[in-house]
Design a protein around this nucleic acid. Structure first.
Lengths: 254, 254
DNA sequence: TTAGTTTAGATGTCTAGACAAATTTTTGCG
DNA sequence: CGCAAAAATTTGTCTAGACATCTAAACTAA
């Protein structure tokens, strides 16, 4: 494989493709490009050559290059944008799930800028799942707060957080005025809260979630359902989140 | 299936594709086929019509059908086997992670047959991670037990489980004779153990893991790292597992 | 300068055909 | 009948070309 030079191990940058070794051309192309990305030839966020240029470089048809790029996109190594080009995927974020689960704190620790956008805040009747988690009865009034959270300007999380409307009267309006949920809870008398349990599953996103997270529907999202309790162990809020698996890895620790 | 009733709104089984609504043909085909699978027209495990037949049915080129099938395969809806055909993916397994994490029990509850194969059992020096988990010092002797676990005859899990060689002298041989890890631990005097912590992340598998799990390298695996402790809270074993995301959903609950 | 339009460049979709590789079925020989 | 070889079937890969759609840059007119 390493062609000729005895002293220096050359980078396999323009490694010649073999048409007779039984390995599909597109796989070989994918390997070469992945190696180049790993070696930093194309740094994260960088624009790759166009499909046409790559096809010329490897001396194959554009469709063959496209097959290789599709494989890399599926892996999450690339971001393909019609009319713009192909970009190397930036690195993912580690989201630590601990007893103290605070979105902003969590990401600040990783030197990420954070932002949030409330989609809506409204009262509704508790579903069976929400009621069970918050210790209510099905149909009891709860406040649902839907939100999209951003890190470095990218949407990484869509969530709904539920609060008992009886226990926190007026939280509906408080939430609308606040920047974060932690802040709203403090105004409602919850000095501190901790994460009691978290469920993690993987599934495909709904169309709405995919839109919010700006990711294709055929790429899975990580789904977490978490219950927060106050210092006395009483349920404070129940939250269901979908995370952009392209950008986030959930790390669970208790 | 019910072909002709005039009153009943017919299932969109052979819905005509529109070439002018801006939706790619392959996406429309994918939608139709997914709907048919959801409606049970093609039950799990069933062989779909051939690419050629599907192309004929939708009156498109075979490559257009292939694009639709690729999307469905990526979603995990299909299993494509060269020379054999296209098969509907069987349903996934829910693996519950609770305080009592017992592989066999867990799957029996879901009426799954279980099986296991030990890859190797050997002594090695504890890595930093293993040492930290088990309360040892780096380099201390540990027994590593590597295993592939099956449900319904399919590999769904590759794991390494580590035990302190000092605390469990002779477990190396016991493991080789036993069917399960639970059984081996009982023989070593551990009456019961519980899961203390589990970390869950998602990543791409190594080549070896992909081979064991019989899945492509470009499909992610769920990775769990769990620490089990005895009734006194002392660490018993530390395990690292990779799960076939095609077949398993990890459900975490504590 | 600014706003709108045009144009060029880039990716997306679809078709058509040829051959390769893997699997299953059929055929033919003993 | 049994088994091995041949043929048919089915998916995999690659090429070639046409046109659509989206984006960004260049241009034009107010």
């Amino acid at each position: 494989m390493p062609p000729s030079d005895p002293s220096v191990p050359p980078l396999p940058l323009s490694a010649d493709l073999s048409r007779e070794n039984g390995v599909a051309l597109w796989k070989q192309i994918q390997q070469v490009l992945e190696a180049e990305i790993a070696q930093g030839v194309w740094p994260p966020g960088e624009k790759l050559p166009t499909e046409f240029q790559l096809a010329e470089r490897f001396d194959v048809n554009r469709h063959t290059v496209r097959r290789a790029l599709a494989g890399m996109e599926e892996k999450g190594l690339l971001r393909v944008e019609q009319g713009r080009g192909i970009f190397v995927h930036e690195h993912v974020i580690d989201y630590m799930v601990t007893k103290r689960t605070r979105f902003t704190e969590n990401l600040r620790r990783q030197n990420r800028s954070t932002d949030g956008k409330f989609l809506f805040v409204e009262m509704e009747g508790a579903s069976e799942k929400v009621a069970k988690a918050l210790g209510l009865r099905e149909g009891d009034p709860v406040i649902c707060c839907a939100k999209v959270s951003y890190a470095d300007g990218r949407p990484i999380n869509v969530s709904e957080t539920y609060f008992s409307a009886v226990r926190f009267p007026g939280i509906e309006d408080v939430l609308r005025e606040c920047e974060s949920i932690t802040e709203a809870l403090q105004r409602c008398g919850v000095r501190d809260y901790t994460r009691k349990s978290t469920r993690v599953i993987a599934r495909l996103p709904s169309q709405a979630d995919a839109d919010h997270l700006r990711q294709p529907r055929n790429r899975p999202v990580l789904v977490t359902e978490g219950l927060d309790v106050d210092e006395n162990g009483r349920p404070v809020s129940f939250g269901a989140s979908r995370w952009a698996s392209d950008w986030v890895q959930i790390v669970f620790e208790n």
